[in-house]
Write a protein that binds this DNA or RNA. Structure first.
Lengths: 123, 123
DNA sequence: GCCTTGGATCGACAAACGTCAACATAGAGA
DNA sequence: TCTCTATGTTGACGTTTGTCGATCCAAGGC
């Protein structure tokens, strides 16, 4: 489905990113770089059942329905969420592993034996 | 120094983000939402000494020097890196904890007792 | 002092983004 | 089938972003 290895394994601090992988990852982070999308994602991720109806998200914002739909589409294109129509309504959920893969990419390895602190401590 | 609690504690899946916190976080993710900045950050984070001279980063891209300087400024404004002039050159390093705080925010709690899988499994 | 070099800032411009109103589409129910 | 409601899509518009050339500032060497 999604190319997992592209956003998972190496880690930002493991080695300098090549251009291609950086472009892929930037698309995902760009999707998170908007307050509305961040709130939408949080709204879905924090829901007990794991899924939220659009009809519940739209009135939570001071924005038009097309705008919310647009943001949801971007989150979906970024591989962070997915949706399904169920009768009249459409439900969204967070794709399992997507956020954790991103988190893993950001986590620094805590490698001992390297300079663990800010250079200003040595200046 | 940096307002840590703003980007650290609650976690995206803990509760729906309020607008203010979403705006703060979106600024940081937006800083990561560009391939050049991602590569710059990775170049700094993956360096053994922990710091990299601008004179080393600029020629690694097919971009003008002002553009690189601009991207570094955005990363700095996002609280991800900091810099220091040392004689003729300027060195950048990753702010300790910044990436890990972000990672912690993205990590889903793996709370047992909730629906652990995609709704399509139940549909 | 002057000149050179590394890096940041400014001003401008095209491209991308966020937003909306208008329209299109998919089910549900009469 | 026809209508109504819930969402997605399209086209347009103002704002933001990424990029560059030109310029400015800081530090070193002469």
């Amino acid at each position: 489905m999604i190319d997992q290895d592209a956003t998972c394994c190496p880690g930002l601090a493991a080695a300098p990113l090549d251009d291609e992988r950086a472009t892929e990852l930037a698309r995902v982070f760009k999707a998170l770089g908007d307050p509305v999308r961040l709130r939408l994602l949080s709204m879905i991720a924090s829901r007990d059942g794991g899924e939220v109806c659009v009809c519940e998200m739209t009135p939570a914002f001071d924005l038009s329905q097309p705008t919310i739909s647009h943001h949801l589409k971007l989150l979906r294109q970024a591989g962070l969420i997915d949706c399904e129509r169920r009768g009249t309504w459409v439900y969204y959920w967070v794709l399992p592993g997507a956020l954790d893969r991103l988190a893993g990419f950001l986590t620094t390895p805590q490698t001992v034996g390297e300079t663990p602190q800010t250079p200003e401590a040595t200046a």
